[in-house]
């Protein structure tokens, strides 16, 4: 049987407040696609970490920019794409933190990208026509 691909898209501005709208949108999508609550929370975390980096560090000007979030589901495969016109930034090259360090030695921060990599199965980055394309996939077989 061939899988039907379902697609949902959200456009947000490069403002931190927009994260609340992302959370609400994701909750509604989770209900529609019958995702368990734990998956919705994990995906919310992944989006927040990726979007926070872009919104806080991705722009040199003070202008309004749009960030596109695209979810597509084909059978058990979920694909999440985030496209922005911010400064080129490839999160896949960021080294993982050493999570075995003692409290005293652990640096504050630096967990965001690591959480994305641990929650999703694949993380790919491309720079196409002055835009960052972050593509994440996860097998969501129940």
């Amino acid at each position: 049987m061939e899988n039907i691909t379902e697609v949902k898209k959200l456009l947000i501005d490069n403002q931190i407040d927009e994260l609340s709208r992302v959370a609400t949108w994701l909750e509604e999508l989770g209900e529609e696609w019958e995702f368990p609550m734990s998956l919705v929370l994990s995906l919310n975390l992944v989006l927040e970490e990726a979007l926070t980096n872009t919104i806080l560090y991705g722009y040199e000007d003070k202008l309004r920019h749009s960030i596109e979030i695209l979810f597509s589901k084909s059978g058990d495969l979920l694909k999440v794409s985030i496209v922005d016109d911010g400064l080129a930034y490839d999160p896949t090259t960021k080294p993982d933190p050493d999570i075995t360090l003692s409290v005293e030695d652990r640096p504050i921060g630096g967990l965001g990208v690591f959480l994305i990599k641990k929650i999703m199965d694949t993380v790919e980055y491309q720079r196409i026509e002055n835009k960052n394309h972050l593509t994440l996939t996860k097998n969501i077989k129940p």
């Binding site: 919310n44 921060g109 959480l115």
Partner: peptide, 20 residues
């Protein structure tokens, strides 16, 4: 507490460092 991101984890670590 039903949701935490790295921004929240950061606060936990700051408090733990200070308490230690």
């Amino acid at each position: 507490l039903n949701y935490i991101s790295s921004s929240g984890l950061r606060v936990f670590l700051i408090v733990q460092k200070k308490m230690i």
